[in-house]
């Protein structure tokens, strides 16, 4: 079945225990991702989007308090795999993660090329020569000259290192690559050329992406689909076309209005108020306190309302049984 989703996430939850209490970082998230599709998870800092990446890739800190939900990659239920099997059969080979600071996580005393070839040698047991040859192909794909393969990480600029990390994630041709703020520490031009590299990879290798970012403009560079996250939940999941032109959720609308745009003269508008605490998220709609369209129904948790095929919004305004009553 060509239409079966590559990744299906049902009611994913991740809570941390801290000294101040339990943080509901990921609080019931569902989404689907098709093959060769790029989903952008958009959200402000502290909304739980990095925890989502960690939960998917099982790079969890020690203070996990509660973990729940199911994740399917193809026919495999990832959440049912043991850590050992996940590491052997999924990590790198089917699913890879590039984190924001990972360009600083390269081993400083091993040549970059060797590091990029490493997943092939460990997972596939490829001989060194063959692995390096494959690494060279990926280097070209992400836009680094293969001359850099024999350099050490400190000899590379930040942008080059970030590309090398990307190459390492891609070398075993995983079906899905999760990118957590891959460009936010980089300059505009570097950022643009890395986004170019990602577009090329997506086209040529058919890889699927989950791009986690707070930067609305950057997110539009890769997105087929957008999932907007707020206070541990997805408030809107839709196609990029729809999201960037006509978002449905009040938070999506306000977020789009707050982005300064280079080519438009409209003045960006701030969103008043602050996101709620993730220690004790409010009952009902979590955005209600900042929402200009708040009405009586908002004190109850809005269910995910299906507006169209593959377009869900967590807002009572779009529920026909409620919308008449307030706003």
């Amino acid at each position: 079945m060509g239409d079966a989703p590559l990744l299906r996430v049902d009611d994913l939850q991740l809570h941390y225990q801290t000294r101040q209490g339990v943080v509901h970082a990921v609080d019931g998230i569902d989404f689907e991702l098709k093959r060769n599709e790029a989903l952008v998870v958009l959200g402000e800092s502290g909304c739980g989007k990095s925890s989502l990446a960690k939960a998917l890739m099982r790079v969890l800190p020690r203070n996990v308090h509660h973990q729940g939900g199911r994740v399917h990659l193809g026919d495999t239920e990832l959440t049912a795999l043991s850590d050992e099997r996940f590491r052997r059969e999924v990590q790198w080979s089917r699913m890879a993660l590039v984190m924001q600071a990972s360009m600083n996580a390269l081993n400083p005393v091993v040549k970059v090329g060797e590091q990029v070839a490493e997943p092939l040698r460990v997972l596939r047991r490829w001989p060194r020569r063959q692995a390096l040859a494959r690494a060279a192909e990926v280097f070209a794909l992400v836009g680094i000259s293969t001359d850099f393969m024999t350099r050490y990480p400190f000899e590379l600029s930040g942008g080059m290192r970030q590309r090398a990390v990307l190459a390492m994630a891609l070398v075993a041709e995983p079906e899905l690559v999760i990118l957590d703020e891959p460009t936010s520490a980089l300059d505009v031009l570097t950022q643009a050329s890395i986004m170019n590299a990602l577009k090329r990879v997506k086209r040529e290798l058919g890889t699927s992406f989950i791009l986690i970012t707070h930067d609305v403009a950057t997110s539009s560079e890769l997105a087929d689909r957008v999932a907007l996250m707020y206070a541990g939940q997805l408030v809107e999941v839709s196609d990029a076309e729809r999201f960037f032109s006509d978002p449905a959720h009040p938070y999506s609308q306000m977020l789009m209005a707050s982005v300064p745009k280079l080519r438009q003269r409209s003045r960006p508008q701030a969103i008043p108020g602050q996101p709620p605490s993730l220690f004790e998220p409010p009952a009902g709609c979590r955005f209600a306190a900042r929402c200009p369209h708040r009405f009586a129904a908002c004190s109850r948790d809005p269910r995910a309302i299906r507006l169209a095929e593959r377009h869900r919004v967590r807002c009572w305004l779009h529920d026909d049984t409620q919308a008449g009553g307030g706003a």
């Binding site: 505009v188 031009l189 950022q191 643009a192 170019n196 609305v216 403009a217 539009s220 999201f243």
Partner: peptide
């Protein structure tokens, strides 16, 4: 520099930027 900066637009995903 200006060419490299994106404004949010779904069409961005379908074209490469000149860098």
């Amino acid at each position: 520099l200006l060419a490299a900066i994106a404004d949010p637009d779904a069409a961005n995903a379908r074209r490469l930027r000149e860098v």
